[in-house]
Amino acid sequence: MDLSTVWYIVQGVVWTVAITVLSFAIGALGGVGVAAARVSARRWVRVIARGVVDIIRSVPPLVWLFIVYFGLAELGLRFSPFQSAIITFSIIASVYLGEIYRGGLAALGAGQIEAAKSIGLGRPDLLVRIIAPQVVRTVSPSMATYGIGLMKDSALASTIGVVEMTFRANQVAQNTGQGLTAFALVGVIYLLLSAPVGIWTRRFDARLREKYLVA
């Protein structure tokens, strides 16, 4: 495979990373809302949140992608492939990250909240100084792992025409018949992108375990 083709495929990384990072960032914020709704004091909010989360998780991402790109276009909402990808993955990420936050909140336990209240902390302080830091520390590895999953899902955007890595590799494969080389190249890049996160997660996990387990 000549260098220009390789370069063509590699440039797709920009789109891959863009989709991943944007969707993750929006999802990280949206997840707070989702988690809040899931643990809301009002029952109807909790029920609706549960329903929405279940439905979104029960349908494959590809279907949601098609609904946003092809389906909404019928109703007059035309989004570009890139926009459709961001919209779809942001919503999905909000749901999954929200569930991760919820898990972290549950692991925190009521004791922390009680202790904070008993020394007179008000709600915003409580959230920012006590709950958030601890939850973030607990769920960071899970969030990182999800981020990797999101990056792999970004490959789906190739099906609606976003010119990220998988799309370009597919093009090259169909035009030149060098599919194995093309996809092997793409595979290596995915692995290189996810490796540092994997290593960080393992080290972070080990450090957490060290901290809380005095042997």
């Binding site: 899902d153 970004s154 490959a155 998988t166 494969a173 093309a182 996809f183 793409v186 595979g187």
Partner: peptide, 13 residues
């Protein structure tokens, strides 16, 4: 690897 890439590897690769 994304499952999509694995699929393509076998089918197109």
């Amino acid at each position: 690897l994304p499952l999509l890439v694995l699929l393509y590897l076998f089918y197109q690769g």
